[in-house]
Each structure stands twice: as structure tokens, then as C-alpha cells.
């Protein structure tokens, strides 16, 4: 089981699904951020799995995953700082209250 591609894909799929669900349903911005991390991680797992079982070039997938980790870190910093600013302005990080762009 641990040697088949399907298992990895199932895991990453589940993670991604949980991420998307959280992303759409959480009202807390931090929660949304965590969900995004989950989606990113699901993508990383996919990359690694395909790298291991399919790709001829063993280095490429790992490089991309490293890139994703870096990207996630940068994204987390940015997002957290936005959340911080939002919190200062609204004393809340509930996304439902941040709807000033409503038409």
C-alpha cells in the first residue's frame, strides 16, 4: 500500500479537500490561512509522489517543493501582516465583517 501512487494521491486529495472546505467555510482569517497551508501541502505531497513514481528526473519535484515551502512562508508572513492590520482597524478577524467592498 505504502508503495503505490494512489495512496499518496488519496492523502493529498483529502488534505486538499479539507483545505478547500476550511478555506470556504472558516470565518476566522487565521483558519483560512491554515487551510491555505493545507492546500499548499497537498500540492507538495502530490509533487513528491509524482516525482517518486513517475518522473525520470528525481530532482525536479523536490526543487519545486522547496520553492513551495519558501512561497508558503512568504505568503504566511504577508497574510499575517494583512490580518494584523485588519485587526487593528476592525478589532476583529472575522472575515464576514470585512465586507466593505460590497456593492
Amino acid at each position: 500500500m505504502s508503495e503505490s501512487l494512489i495512496a499518496y494521491l488519496l492523502l493529498s486529495g483529502t488534505l486538499a479537500a479539507i483545505g478547500v472546505y476550511g478555506f470556504l467555510e472558516r470565518r476566522n482569517l487565521i483558519g483560512i490561512l491554515i487551510s491555505i497551508e493545507l492546500i499548499l501541502n497537498a500540492a507538495s505531497i502530490n509533487f513528491l509522489a509524482f516525482n517518486k513514481f513517475v518522473s525520470p528526473d528525481k530532482g525536479l519535484g523536490q526543487a519545486i517543493v522547496l520553492l513551495i515551502i519558501g512561497l508558503a512562508a512568504a505568503e504566511a508572513t504577508l497574510a499575517l501582516s494583512i490580518i494584523l492590520v485588519l485587526y487593528r482597524g476592525m478589532t476583529s478577524i472575522n472575515i464576514e465583517e470585512a465586507n466593505h467592498l460590497k456593492g
Partner: peptide, 16 residues
């Protein structure tokens, strides 16, 4: 403009 609810997650849902 009614579509424009201002709710981030509604937009995301549509995108998704």
C-alpha cells in the same frame, strides 16, 4: 452589484 456581496469566501466559492 448584488452579486458583489463583499464576502471574500463567496467570491472564492465562485472561483472554485
Amino acid at each position: 452589484t448584488k452579486v458583489q456581496s463583499g464576502e471574500l469566501q463567496d467570491y472564492l466559492m465562485i472561483v472554485f
